[in-house]
């Protein structure tokens, strides 16, 4: 395929190993795998049971789906199994600057793990992706404005202020933090990566903001910028087939560029 030729040296790329982690009910792993594969890397779909050492990989991705049926709370069971298996290794992996990303259910897992917003090291959640205000699962296209000033390593190839059309599909995507101060901190730290907007680029209400997330927030990163989660699905908008401008591919390119330069 063309991408290896356009985007850097194919050989280096193929040395990059991406772990697409799954358990039962995870169901977006193939499109996540394809997103990295198309860019010339060596992704692997790994069942948590079979994961040997996270340090075998250069990047950890938690895909969407309904891990363990989303019983208890979306992402909670997957998070607690990850914690039981490798809490310390994962913190070390992140501290060493390796990228960790979560899309949709994966974002919910990272929040349940306490890694996002991750103001300080903790092993319990300090945020929640609550039930959408519409109280329903909703699958619809959403417009996202890129807000990161450069901290988030997953979006560095996307200019600030760009708008992308990315499909959303979730029932629990309304981001809330315990205190108003937490939001101030999120903005001050450049941790807000994507916000839902309307066609004019303005922060608008439902259905533009499909879950009524606070401040229209769709995706955030940690303080260091190497842990990132978002509700909408860039892997489903990988190709800009509908000519909406920025394609989902940019996200995967950004993180690969970071790994290559690391």
């Amino acid at each position: 395929m063309l991408f290896g030729i356009i985007w850097g040296d194919y050989l280096d790329r193929s040395d990059i190993k991406v772990c697409v982690l799954r358990i039962e009910g995870t169901n977006n792993e193939e499109e996540m795998y394809n997103a990295f594969k198309r860019l010339g890397t060596s992704p692997e779909i790994v069942h948590l049971k079979e994961l040997k050492d996270i340090f075998d990989y250069n990047c950890l991705m938690i895909p969407g789906g309904f891990s363990a049926g989303d019983y208890v709370r979306a992402g909670a069971i997957f998070a607690s199994r990850i914690r039981a298996k490798m809490a310390n290794e994962l913190h070390k992996f992140i501290d060493e600057g390796w990228p960790v990303g979560g899309i949709c259910n994966g974002f919910q897992v990272l929040v349940e793990l306490g890694l996002l917003p991750g103001f300080k090291r903790m092993d319990y959640p300090n945020a929640c992706l609550f039930l959408n205000n519409s109280a329903r699962f909703e699958c619809r296209p959403t417009l996202l404005k890129h807000e990161s000033k450069g901290k988030c390593i997953f979006t560095r190839n996307i200019p600030k202020g760009e708008i992308m059309m990315v499909p959303s599909a979730h029932g629990e995507g309304k981001l809330l933090l315990p205190k108003e101060k937490d939001f101030d901190k999120l903005f001050e730290n450049d941790q807000v990566v994507f916000r839902y907007v309307d066609k004019k680029g303005e922060y608008a209400e439902y259905p533009w903001n499909p879950n009524d997330s606070a401040y229209n927030i769709a995706g955030i990163c940690n303080e260091a910028g190497n842990v990132f989660g978002m509700m909408p699905h860039p892997e489903r908008a990988y190709f800009d087939r509908n000519k909406n401008g920025i394609s989902g591919m940019k996200i995967f390119e950004s993180v690969l560029k970071y790994i290559e330069e690391k």
């Binding site: 977006n28 997103a35 699958c139 699905h233």
Partner: peptide
């Protein structure tokens, strides 16, 4: 009805 069904999962819905 339709928006309650995930019609974009698998990333192959054109």
């Amino acid at each position: 009805v339709i928006l309650q069904y995930d019609h974009t999962v698998r990333g192959s819905t054109s």
